[in-house]
Design a protein around this nucleic acid. Structure first.
Lengths: 224, 224
DNA sequence: ATATAAACACTAGTATACAAGTGGACTAGA
DNA sequence: TCTAGTCCACTTGTATACTAGTGTTTATAT
């Protein structure tokens, strides 16, 4: 497992949650791996308690499966589960962006535009890896504008299922199209054009149509 | 706080979660109340650990607010939060019932009808309090049919905000209409009539239009 | 050699102990 | 009387100890 520096002010539990989560999404913790509370605690230099609390949280979203007195395992990739998280994202993003079309203030729009400009900047320089955090920020902004912060939190944890398949996906993601989707969404929100906004959300998510058969063939041991 | 018997096989954590949750929804734990890990643990005859884990889970959905080294409090009723949970329910229930219209098997439909018949039976005998668990089961069934169990779990915890206002609501809920809504949804799913199903979901949720001003006036100390 | 049982090494669940921070009460001093 | 400072009783965060269950390995008896 990849360790990371503990951020100043971060509690042990948040630290453990962040590290475990990142390792699952990046597949450094492979599906099916035993995640022993003791072992993780040792690796992170913590006691079992905060690690355990982090694992419990992940188990609530079926990211980790806890078998009492036996062990806790990183869940195998379950296409039903991936579909469920995709469904959740599609449904929520669509409904939330409509609200954002109503509520976005000038200040909100300025922040969004700044974010999109940065994405375009990094894209033009080929620094595509710097786009991902901005991508996340962008979607989070929409939830913030629509005053749906709690819903965003729930979305986040379920997205782990989705994101980890994205990591596996051999097909290179078309960053160019993604960034232009973002610009489109920004424009739609600015113009209060709900229909266009929802249409873009659907198209956007459609870009992550993984070829599951190809992935499953290559990484069959990761699948349920 | 109202205590309850621990169900056989229930872990200490699940027990604590259930009891705390029920007491918050029933308002036996009033908004703003301090929920001390130690005190709850003592009342339930447990140690702090499982109680703490339950409180953390509730805090993830903003049901309880944890102030480190100060205390944890039952969240005051926040109309923004109530609206957010209503929004979530509306969006999810609508999207999920559409899927259920596609996927419901004969076995599913039989179980649904049995549930509805029971609701009608208790309604006719005036035993309205027996309808509520059936109501919950009914909605859970729809998520099960649509294979969206994880999403249902997320919905459940957010519904605490909504349910606790429902408890406060002076206006008596029209159980008759609720039961007939359920029959309507069942029929719509049976007939694969998505449009009708979604329309009923919206109407159904619309029946819980609390007069917030009236409630806020009567219980102002519960509100943020 | 095989079957059985005891021992061991692990697991997560729960209980307890300690750390560190907060805020109020009380006291000492001017 | 007022203020400053100490103490105390509380809180949650974290660490550690103990409980009970599982599965494998090893030893023992037939």
């Amino acid at each position: 497992m990849n360790n990371t520096e503990r951020i100043a002010g971060e509690t042990a539990r948040d630290f453990a949650l962040r590290v475990i989560r990142d390792n699952i999404v990046s597949l450094d913790l492979k599906p099916g791996t035993l995640v022993s509370e003791n072992e993780i605690a040792f690796e992170l230099g913590l006691s079992r308690t905060p690690v355990r609390e982090a694992i419990i949280e992940l188990s609530k979203a079926s990211i980790i499966e806890i078998y009492p007195q036996k062990g806790s395992y990183v869940s195998l990739i379950d296409s039903k589960m991936v579909e469920e998280s995709r469904f959740l994202r599609n449904v929520l993003d669509s409904a939330v962006i409509e609200v954002a079309c109503d509520l976005a203030s000038d200040k909100d729009l300025n922040e969004m535009e700044e974010n999109v400009l940065l994405q375009e900047f990094f894209l033009s320089r080929g620094e595509n890896e710097k786009i991902y955090p901005l991508d996340n920020d962008f979607h989070k902004m929409i939830y913030n504008i629509a005053e749906k912060r709690n819903i965003y939190e729930m979305r986040s944890i379920m997205m782990i299922h989705f994101d980890r398949v994205r990591t596996l996906s051999v097909e290179t993601v078309k960053d160019l199209k993604i960034v232009s989707d973002h610009r489109g969404m920004y424009e739609a929100i600015k113009n209060h054009d709900k229909e266009k906004a929802v249409q873009l959300v659907n198209k956007h998510l459609g870009r992550y149509q993984f070829d599951e058969n190809a992935i499953r063939e290559q990484f069959s041991e990761y699948f349920k």
